[in-house]
Design a protein around this nucleic acid. Structure first.
Lengths: 145, 145
DNA sequence: GCAGACCCTGAAGCTACTATAGGGTCAAGA
DNA sequence: TCTTGACCCTATAGTAGCTTCAGGGTCTGC
């Protein structure tokens, strides 16, 4: 099959397929005389694997590593474990950060009932006040993900 | 004060200050004869406001809009409300997506107890299997944030 | 007069794609 | 045979919000 069909079957854009090839996530395929890429079932399988990992929000570097590891079938799979564990922890950390964020935003949103003017808008007031207050440590050296 | 001191006081990098100036988030400051930027307290206040909004994960475009709106003090503050509300909803959507993700990753992590080889690693097995299964719709047209 | 800390500009790098420009290929229909 | 339309190719730029780097100037103290 050609690039377009492979892409369609995996539910991605054809450009993404070429991008993955450049990034060494897909094996370089054979070409027709006129330069069209020719893919087989193994490519589709691999592309699906990559997309599944991406749907789990794994960075491409991790996916690449998993692909390498899955080739070395005799090795202990500690590395696979660590990688997934580390990713799980990143996701959990992000959830915690967003939960805190959501609380702050909900509180902020509650400051204004939209029936008044910018000059005495509770939200802006709060934003400006919070930005100046000594007590507001939320924008000092916070980790950004 | 010069760029470095402003940056230090706001807890950011000096390059970030210059970046915000380019992006029209800070007023262009006066310069010394030799070209050094000179900032006053108003700049620090504004920079703190920007950083506070960023700590709430607001995109710079939203921050720019808030800065504009806070200048028009006679207007109704409906726009401020909408902006914060929309951002809050984005954050909530992201939390929901990450919660689902965390469950999938935790399940995946539980597949392998690390005492065996890659050849029969439960995680890799599961990843490959899930990527191929018809039932796995998780990587077909999922929304990406 | 020199070291070290600071300042400047412009450009590249990061992630994971997406989009655009400018061109070639192929199969079917008139 | 010509044309149309759908596909393919490459290379490059754009997205967000910075960070880092290269290559240079300035200022202060010894």
């Amino acid at each position: 099959m050609h690039t377009g069909e492979l892409a369609r079957r995996a539910g991605v854009d054809a450009q993404t397929v070429r991008y993955y090839e450049r990034e060494k996530l897909l094996d370089t395929p054979a070409r027709t005389a006129s330069g069209y890429r020719i893919y087989g079932p193994a490519h589709l399988e691999r592309l699906n694997f990559v997309r599944h990992c991406r749907s789990l929000d794994m960075p491409l570097a991790d996916v690449r590593r998993l692909l390498e590891l899955s080739g070395e079938r005799g090795l202990s799979c500690d590395d696979v474990n660590e990688l997934v564990q580390a990713h799980l922890e990143r996701v959990r950390a992000k959830i915690a950060a967003l939960d805190a964020l959501e609380k702050q935003l909900a509180a902020l949103r509650a400051q204004c009932d939209s029936r008044h003017r910018v000059a005495d808008c509770g939200i802006l007031e709060e934003l400006i006040h919070a930005a100046q207050g000594e007590a507001c440590a939320c924008h000092r050296g916070r980790d950004r993900t």
